[in-house]
Nucleic acid binder design. Structure first.
Ligand SMILES: NC(=O)c1ccc[n+]([C@@H]2O[C@H](COP(=O)([O-])OP(=O)(O)OC[C@H]3O[C@@H](n4cnc5c(N)ncnc54)[C@H](O)[C@@H]3O)[C@@H](O)[C@H]2O)c1
Ligand SMILES: NC(=O)c1ccc[n+]([C@@H]2O[C@H](COP(=O)([O-])OP(=O)(O)OC[C@H]3O[C@@H](n4cnc5c(N)ncnc54)[C@H](O)[C@@H]3O)[C@@H](O)[C@H]2O)c1
Lengths: 218, 218
DNA sequence: TAGTTTTTGTGATTTTTTTCACTACAAATA
DNA sequence: TATTTGTAGTGAAAAAAATCACAAAAACTA
């Protein structure tokens, strides 16, 4: 199965668009509706589906409910995904309070920091996963991750601290890391590290805006 | 000049890595050092530079100071980039308080919202750009953007409000938008819209982690 | 029922991006 | 000065991704 990062990203966009279409009362979609909703082409939509063996009906398009269900299974949304976050500063706080993840079956179940003024829990044994997100000392991370079988971690610590956090995560059994620190992190083959580089995104935008305003047209 | 988004993103990574190397006392770099620092290959580094006519010395590598300077010019960092943000909620607040942008010559000069409890300024005429980020009512956006010649805007409003904000930005003369709302926005040819899809990034990571744990190996 | 329309599914093709492989040259060394 | 060494620069090749184009099936039409 040929998978490519962009393709998976599109799958989650399709899924989001489908929820929106569904809430608008639609029952069916065609590849070109989806293409339009996510800024792709109709044939790309169909090719993406074909890669994952998703099929619709000729002339009838795709049934939204079925399509959502299939996409959710592919994207691992058939079960709640437990995630931890390290670094409860400005960005970490924003992420941990974001309610939008929950409807995607993603839950930030614990936060870790080294700043003791941020802790709201000290006894790891008392924590229940459905209460308000506990904020714990970093040293509890390995135990927490193992006990709760956590696979995904988010890093929102300053860049100088990020590699240290990666090392702790790796040795605790984390298998996927979403890193917001603007630095290259070294992992191992057993763990996927994806980076979100917000400075980079802004710089990129600035570059293309400057490039296009300098050359007058697009 | 063949430009591609990934290539520009790499340029900003090179630049970041160069600052780090410089602060470590290095004066020169070779393409393979840079490759290592940003997770690329040496030939990609050289090719990227060749696209932009950046050249080094055979056997001598690149002089870090010169390289930084050239990259900064390409990336538009020779002058302060003024940016506005709309939606001062959880994420918008984190971004507007982030100090890391300033060292990249990017400054969030004003924030806009519709929630009056967030405003800290009411008279647009009184605002000076070097004071604490003013938070204004959305209705002042067009005037502010025109007077201060702002080209870049960040959107951190809920998805249902995002298109409306785009429309206001476009008609005010904004040329580049960085959007955090998980929805496709419609712009025009005169304005570049880049999306940061944090849910998507997490879902993507979850997919690949699940895919690799299911198939045992990498 | 036959014909027409619409939309899927996918192999073939094109385009884009990355990697390879080799030349040229500057610096170090003998 | 001659020789060796290491690295830049770059066209060619390969790989990856996107697009095209069209046959086939389903759903309408009359
Ligand atoms: N805030 C933003 O909007 C923004 C934008 C772009 C990038 N980033 C990046 O995201 C990261 C976080 O940014 P921020 O603005 O939230 O920073 P912040 O300073 O507000 O928060 C960092 C948090 O990490 C904690 N911390 C530091 N070292 C730690 C360690 N070793 N283990 C655990 N916790 C530790 C600190 O106590 C603090 O709570 C940084 O790498 C930054 O470059 C942030
Ligand atoms: N918080 C996160 O970590 C996070 C993560 C992923 C995506 N996002 C996305 O980022 C956006 C913001 O998220 P948030 O958590 O900061 O939301 P939030 O609810 O905390 O903040 C939204 C802000 O936008 C303002 N607003 C609403 N309508 C507006 C309008 N028409 N004009 C101007 N301001 C308006 C609100 O008053 C509020 O201050 C959302 O689209 C969300 O999906 C956020």
């Amino acid at each position: 199965m040929k998978t490519n990062k962009l393709c998976i990203i599109r799958l989650s966009k399709y899924k989001n668009a489908l929820y929106r279409l569904k809430s608008l009362g639609f029952v069916r979609v065609f590849s070109d509706n989806l293409a339009d909703a996510v800024e792709a082409t109709a044939s790309q939509v169909r090719k993406d589906f074909s890669i994952f063996g998703i099929s619709g009906n000729k002339r009838g398009g795709y049934k939204i409910d079925e399509l959502i269900e299939k996409l959710n299974i592919i994207l691992g949304k058939d079960e709640l995904q437990k995630v931890i976050i390290v670094g409860l500063g400005k960005l970490g706080t924003a992420l941990s309070r974001y309610t939008g993840f929950e409807k995607e079956e993603i839950k930030i179940v614990a936060a870790f920091d080294i700043d003791s003024t941020k802790f709201n829990q000290t006894d790891i044994k008392m924590i229940k996963l459905n209460e308000k997100t506990p904020v714990l000392a970093l040293e509890y991370l390995p135990e927490f991750v193992r006990k709760n079988n956590i696979k995904i971690g988010i890093i929102t610590v300053p860049d100088i601290a990020a590699q240290q956090v990666v090392d702790i995560m790796l040795s605790s059994g984390i298998k996927g890391i979403l890193n917001f620190a603007p630095i290259r992190l070294r992992g191992n083959d057993d763990c996927i590290i994806n980076n979100v580089n917000l400075e980079g995104e802004l710089e990129n935008l600035i570059y293309f805006v400057n490039a296009s305003t300098k050359t007058k047209g697009k």
